[in-house]
Amino acid sequence: MTDSSKILEEMNDRSREVFRRVVEGYLETGDPVGSRTLTRSLSESVSAATIRNVMQDLEYLGLLDSPHVSAGRVPTQMGLRMFVDGLLEVGDLNTGDREKIDATLGNNSGDVGSMLDRVSTALSGVTQGASLVLAPKHEAPIKHIEFVSLAHDRALVVLVFADGQVE
């Protein structure tokens, strides 16, 4: 059992809900989430002081951080990883999205590059976000990734690998 799954199992329902709402609020707005904001949205009625105590406990566990004394909380890297691994609820694909993805595989021209381009486009369309699909060319890990805006709907992705190769 990993440390993050152990932490998640040991958290009570209130802590789990506060953590989930802080992460979701942060991902939605990019701003720290405060205790007063959470008191309005939690399933149980508790005071802002109670929420601050729970957030302080989550900060002690390394899941949340505070940019400054009077700010709300933001998730740490470890907190975001734990959220994705243990709390993120992803729904099933609807029929239209499934058909879009399946259509990318139906046109096998033998060209791996064009197939990966189609898969990337389909994933971006379904998720309404950036997608990155790579063919395993070599074993070097990615050292740096940069997105350069080319237009409102296009971006250039620059990958720098640990062995110095750039794509």
Rank of each mutant, 00 (worst) to 15 (best):
D3Y: 12
D3G: 01
K6W: 03
E9G: 00
E9Q: 04
E9V: 01
E10D: 13
M11C: 05
N12A: 08
N12M: 05
D13I: 05
D13A: 10
R16N: 01
R16V: 02
E17V: 07
V18R: 04
V18E: 07
V18M: 06
R20E: 07
V23S: 01
L27H: 02
T29E: 08
T29P: 05
G30Y: 06
D31G: 05
D31H: 12
D31R: 15
G34E: 12
R36H: 11
R36E: 15
R36W: 10
R36T: 14
L38Q: 09
L38F: 08
T39D: 06
R40W: 10
R40D: 15
S41V: 14
S43M: 03
E44R: 13
S45T: 12
V46A: 10
S47V: 04
S47F: 07
A48E: 15
A49K: 09
A49R: 07
T50G: 02
I51A: 08
I51S: 10
I51R: 06
R52A: 15
N53I: 06
M55N: 02
M55W: 02
Q56H: 13
Q56D: 15
Q56W: 13
D57N: 11
L58C: 04
E59S: 12
L61E: 12
L61S: 03
L63E: 02
D65A: 14
S66K: 15
S66M: 12
H68Y: 14
H68K: 02
V69M: 10
S70K: 11
R73H: 15
R73S: 14
R73A: 14
V74D: 03
V74R: 12
P75Q: 02
Q77V: 06
M78T: 01
L80G: 00
L80I: 13
F83R: 00
V84A: 06
V84K: 03
D85P: 00
G86F: 09
G91M: 07
L93D: 09
N94I: 14
N94R: 15
T95Q: 14
G96I: 14
D97A: 15
R98P: 04
E99L: 15
K100I: 14
I101W: 09
I101Q: 04
D102F: 13
A103D: 15
T104D: 02
L105C: 01
G106A: 13
G106C: 08
G106S: 14
N107L: 09
S109I: 09
M115N: 04
R118P: 02
V119F: 12
S120H: 01
S120V: 00
S120M: 02
T121K: 06
T121Q: 11
T121M: 04
L123G: 03
S124A: 13
S124N: 06
G125K: 09
G125V: 03
T127P: 00
Q128V: 05
Q128I: 04
G129C: 09
G129F: 10
L132T: 13
V133S: 01
A135H: 09
P136D: 08
P136L: 08
K137R: 08
A140V: 08
I142D: 10
K143N: 02
E146K: 03
V148H: 05
V148Y: 05
A155T: 09
L156P: 00
L156C: 02
L156M: 13
V157T: 14
L159H: 08
F161H: 14
A162H: 12
V166F: 02
E167I: 12
